[in-house]
Computed example of a mutant assay.
Amino acid sequence: MGKRHIRKMLRRMGTGEPVHASTGLGTTKGLARLAFYAEQFGYEYAGAHQLGKKYVIRVVPAHDPEARARAAENWVRYPGAASRGALPQLDEDAVAVFNARIGFELATRFTEKQMLGLTTFGFTGLALGPWIKFGLVVGGTFWLALMALVPILLVANRRYRAKNAALLKAAGFTPVTDRDGQPRYLPPAADPRD
């Protein structure tokens, strides 16, 4: 991820309003880096979602005194961060925690039933082309092969969520369910009622 996305986000943060940010590829690691830099300059990570084909994070102004002090210090130390100046050193451990948090949230957007339905619908759509072009035998075989992947994908998603949940628990994060019923992890100092 280039610094261009970081600088664009920092300029938008200058308004003091919540900001949605994404990288060119929208990878969770790139989004985690954006969240890290937002935290260095007075914002905090508030969630991740999919917008079209890209993943996007939402960052909001942080109100706790420690975050404000860190932001003030970093704006003084890195006055050109939003343009072409230097940026703070990237903390890979902090980025790994953000990456786990973003990955967990994106992996739990849908329940397993919803994932099963979406995958079945999508794989059926993919099998229509071969069925129309080559007939029922080829199309049906292709569909069966795709459907055989469904349990593998569900197990892989469970493992991915469990791996990220374990990392977040080890970092002191608290599991909660948000207003929409989605499981999330809040940082150690966050109020679960937010």
Rank of each mutant, 00 (worst) to 15 (best):
T124P: 03
R159I: 13
D178H: 09
G2D: 08
T108N: 06
G85D: 12
V59D: 03
R77T: 10
L149D: 02
V59K: 02
L25R: 09
R12N: 14
E73D: 15
G125L: 00
A81E: 04
I132P: 08
A62I: 05
A48Q: 03
N74G: 05
R12E: 15
F123R: 00
A156N: 12
K29G: 12
R179W: 12
V59Y: 01
T15A: 15
A46W: 02
H5V: 13
L87E: 06
Q89H: 07
L116R: 09
Y43V: 02
L167E: 01
F123A: 01
V56C: 06
E44F: 12
E39I: 11
D180K: 13
T177A: 04
A46Y: 04
M13V: 13
R4V: 11
I152P: 03
L146G: 00
Y78V: 01
D194C: 08
G24C: 09
Q50I: 10
A189S: 15
G26F: 04
A145N: 00
D178E: 06
V176E: 06
T119Y: 09
P151Y: 13
Y43N: 02
R33T: 11
G129Q: 06
A38H: 03
Y185G: 00
K29L: 09
E92S: 10
G2R: 10
P192S: 01
K54A: 08
Q114N: 07
E105F: 02
A96T: 08
R161L: 11
M13L: 15
H5P: 06
Q114V: 00
A35K: 02
G85P: 05
G52Q: 07
K169E: 15
R184I: 02
A166M: 11
E17L: 12
F142S: 01
R70Q: 15
E105P: 02
P175C: 10
K133W: 15
F123P: 01
Y45L: 05
K8N: 14
R12V: 10
A189N: 11
Y160Q: 12
F123K: 03
A38V: 05
I132H: 02
V97M: 07
D64Q: 14
W131I: 08
F98Q: 14
Q40A: 14
G24Y: 07
W131F: 10
K133F: 15
